[in-house]
Each structure stands twice: as C-alpha cells, then as structure tokens.
C-alpha cells in the first residue's frame, strides 16, 4: 500500500532533482535579461511614458496567476477522477505560488492604474475577475487547512478548485458585459501583434523567467509535501506498531 502510494512521487522526485537546477538557472537568467531589457533597453511609451515598464512585471504575473490556477484545477481533477497520487500534491503546492502571482498582479495593476487612470482601482472587467481569482485561491487554501484530517481537506479543496475552474470563464464573461453596460472599456488595450518588439522582448523574457520560477518553486514545494506525507505515514505506522 505504501509502495503504491509513493511509487509515482519517487519517480517524480528523481525528475525534480535533475530539473530543479535547470529551472532555477533559467529563471535567474531570464529575469535578469528581462530586467536589463525592460529597465534600460526598451524605450518609454509615447503615451504612457516610463510607467509602461510596470507592464513587464504586471502582465507576466497575470499570465502566471491564471496558469497556476489551471495547474491547481488540473491537479485536483487528476486527483479526484484518476486518483493520481501526485495530482493533489501538485495542486496543493501550486496554490500559494499562484496566490503570490495574483497578489503581484493586483498590486502592480493598482500602481499602474494610479498614474494612468487616476485611480488605484476601477471596477473594470479584468480587475474584477482577477480579484475573484484571488478569492478563489484564498478559499482553496483556507479549505485545505480547515480540517483535522488532511486527506479530507485535500478532497474538499479539490472539489472547490474544479468548481472554481468552471466559474472563471463565467465571471470573465459576465463582468465584461456588466462593465460595458456602465462605461466603455477603459483598460489600456494591448493588441498582441501591434506591440513593438522592443517591448515584446522584455515582456516575453520576464514571462519565461516567471514561468521557470514557478516551475522551480513548484518542484521545491512538491518535495516538501512528499516528505511531509512520508512523515505522516511513518508516524501512523509507528503508532500502529505500538498499539
């Protein structure tokens, strides 16, 4: 039974040991290059001035916030549907990182919004759906820790993650409609191909750096989670042996 439960994590840990240094190095290199390009090489925007540089942390963190949630939900699905032992571990490990990216996205968005729109916060469709995403993350983690039995908390949180996944596009779509009823879209729209390469390069470099950071920290947290589970099983076995 114990062998079955850890067969997969053991293979995963071997993979993690190989991959972790590569992801860490790539994260540092990409972020350093992204910072150099973003702060020194890329020009100030003719409309937004120097504040456009906030984009190089804001947009990648928004991407990673959404990506991390899909990892949480994907892990939860594989845990509930296929009983994959790693699914829940990965979901549990990805949630705090995703929360961090969402927080960065919200704070940098406010810092970008104040000089550009004159307000720290507007009830714009994008902002609202990211805020809801933040609450979904917090709810997921609160539910994880709310039970005396960690297995039970894991299962309940997995169900919540899946429900939240269904809800994310609905929120996005509904607040889009809600917003356009009240005011025209005020968000600085960035049409993908129209962006100049001098801005695209640092943006993509930072995005790659954030993605590698996510992968590296995810591997670390999975390692911690696997160790914690092993400790739990060993303690349980010890208790059974004594009784």
């Amino acid at each position: 039974m114990v062998m079955h439960r850890f067969a997969n994590p053991a293979r995963f840990l071997r993979f993690a040991a190989v991959a972790l240094p590569w992801f860490s190095a790539a994260a540092v290199l990409c972020m350093a290059a992204g910072l150099a390009f973003g702060l020194f090489v890329s020009p100030a925007d003719y409309q937004q001035g120097e504040t456009v540089r906030i984009m190089y942390v804001h947009v990648p963190s928004a991407w990673m916030a959404m990506f991390a949630y899909t990892v949480v939900a994907g892990g939860s699905i594989s845990a509930l549907v296929w009983k994959h032992p790693l699914g829940e571990i990965v979901a549990r490990a990805a949630a705090p990182i995703g929360t961090g990216f969402t927080l960065v996205c919200l704070v940098t968005g406010a810092l970008w919004g104040k000089p550009m729109w004159g307000a720290w916060w507007v009830w714009d469709a994008r902002l609202t759906s990211v805020l809801v995403l933040f609450f979904l993350y917090l709810g997921y983690m609160a539910l994880l820790g709310a039970f005396d039995d960690p297995v039970r908390g894991g299962r309940a949180a997995s169900i919540l993650a899946i429900v939240g996944l269904v809800n994310v596009p609905i929120i996005k779509w509904s607040v889009d409609w809600w917003n356009t009823l009240h005011q025209p879209a005020s968000v600085a729209r960035m049409d993908g191909p129209a962006i100049h390469s001098s801005m695209l390069v640092p943006l993509l470099l930072m995005a790659a750096g954030f993605a590698c950071y996510f992968a590296a920290v995810l591997l670390l947290r999975v390692r911690a989670e696997v160790a914690a589970r092993r400790i739990r099983t060993l303690r349980l076995a010890a208790m059974e042996a004594e009784s």
Binding site: T128, L136, A142, A146, F147, N167, V175
Partner: peptide
C-alpha cells in the same frame, strides 16, 4: 466538519455568486 465552517462557507461561496 471544518473548523469555522460558517465564515469559511462565505469565503468559498461569495466569489462564485458574482455573476
């Protein structure tokens, strides 16, 4: 069976009721 179930319930459900 969760600790502080009532508060937790609001935290989980309120974001989903936005639409």
């Amino acid at each position: 069976g969760a600790r502080r179930g009532g508060v937790l319930l609001a935290l989980l459900v309120l974001p989903l009721t936005v639409p």
